[in-house]
């Protein structure tokens, strides 16, 4: 009797998660249907976001979401790799636990704290020191002068990517450390035995063995970066345009939805467009997380 009740309860709980997920997707899609009907596929490629003329397109926030997340990964992955490598191979045993705990604590800091820290500490540094120097240094060099142009607001795509990188480093580092620890000691010992350096062991033994899981961990970080709202809102500059400059202001889907939602009347095209963007973000995040699950599966099983 008890077994049957428990089995039923567990089954219902599992089913509930699926139901919830499906419900969110369906309701977002239905909510955004008016926007998809009105603008069609052009919604995804139109850079317009004009509440006055009721013309909405998602290209700017979609672009901003992808660019900030990818830049954040470029900044975060090498650092996270360094942390994980240090913790598994180089750090003295007594230091591994405190540093590991510190990284887990970093992952637990609420994103609003990162946002405020970014806005009140990083943005002034970017505006006062980093951006003027970089803009001056690259002035006159083709491509680079466009990539680092503009008035030094301090906010912008690069600042947002930097904050995101700080936020996802703990996730990626923790995952990498865990998968590095799954490498059987005998492989590493053998490599050291034939005279490999630590770096060679890492490159030729640990990385090939864990490659798939490492990519999975990176995808997990990417998933978090894609959906981050508050911290990005603080530092991205919140402008609906695409600029060639990494210092230029931009927008992300999550940030735009958070900012515009309270002033969107029920039944309006604007609200439908925001829900449509939410649906698109859901799909992007779903794809990224699905990839990460598929890649992580072989390692986490053992």
């Amino acid at each position: 009797m008890g077994d049957a009740v428990f089995a039923g309860f567990a089954r219902a709980s599992g089913g509930f998660v699926l139901l919830l997920l499906g419900g969110i997707i369906v309701s977002l899609f239905i909510g955004g249907l008016a926007a998809f009907r009105q603008f069609g596929a052009a919604f995804v490629v139109s850079p317009l976001w004009n509440p006055v003329t009721q013309k909405f397109g998602g290209l700017v926030p979609i672009y901003g979401t992808l660019v900030t997340s990818v830049l954040a990964l470029l900044l975060a992955v090498p650092l996270a790799f360094g942390i994980a490598f240090y913790l598994t191979e180089l750090a003295p045993a007594w230091l591994r636990r405190p540093v590991g705990t510190a990284i887990e604590l970093l992952a637990a800091v609420p994103s609003i704290i990162y946002g405020m820290w970014g806005f009140f500490v990083i943005v002034p540094i970017m505006a006062g020191t980093v951006q003027p120097a970089v803009i001056g240094a690259f002035d006159g060099i083709p491509v680079l002068q466009d990539l680092f142009a503009g008035p030094p607001f301090g906010t912008g795509i690069l600042t947002a990517a930097f904050i995101l990188a700080v936020m996802i480093i703990p996730f990626i580092a923790a995952t990498m450390r865990d998968v590095f620890l799954t490498v059987p000691a005998v492989y590493k010992e053998s490599a050291y035995g034939v005279g490999c350096t630590t770096w060679e062991v890492m490159r030729s033994i640990v990385l090939p063995y864990t490659r798939v899981s490492v990519v999975g961990g990176i995808m997990l970080g990417l998933g978090r970066a894609l959906g981050e709202t508050m911290a990005v809102t603080f530092v991205i500059g919140n402008a609906n345009r695409i600029t060639s400059s990494l210092f230029g202001a931009g927008n992300t889907i999550a940030s735009l939805v958070a900012l515009e939602f309270p002033e969107s009347p029920a039944g309006s095209l604007k609200l439908a467009s925001l829900l449509a963007l939410g649906f698109i973000l859901f799909v992007i995040s779903f794809i990224v997380l699905a990839i990460s699950r598929i890649l992580l599966r072989p390692r986490l099983k053992g």
């Binding site: 976001w49 004009n50 509440p51 943005v123 002034p124 607001f153 912008g156 603080f234 402008a239 609906n240």
Partner: peptide, 23 residues
Amino acid sequence: SVAWPGGAGGKGSDGVTATVQQI
């Protein structure tokens, strides 16, 4: 909210103020 020709956006009056004061 409008399609601003340029500039940066701050969240709320606090955000606008802090951004102006920083630049």
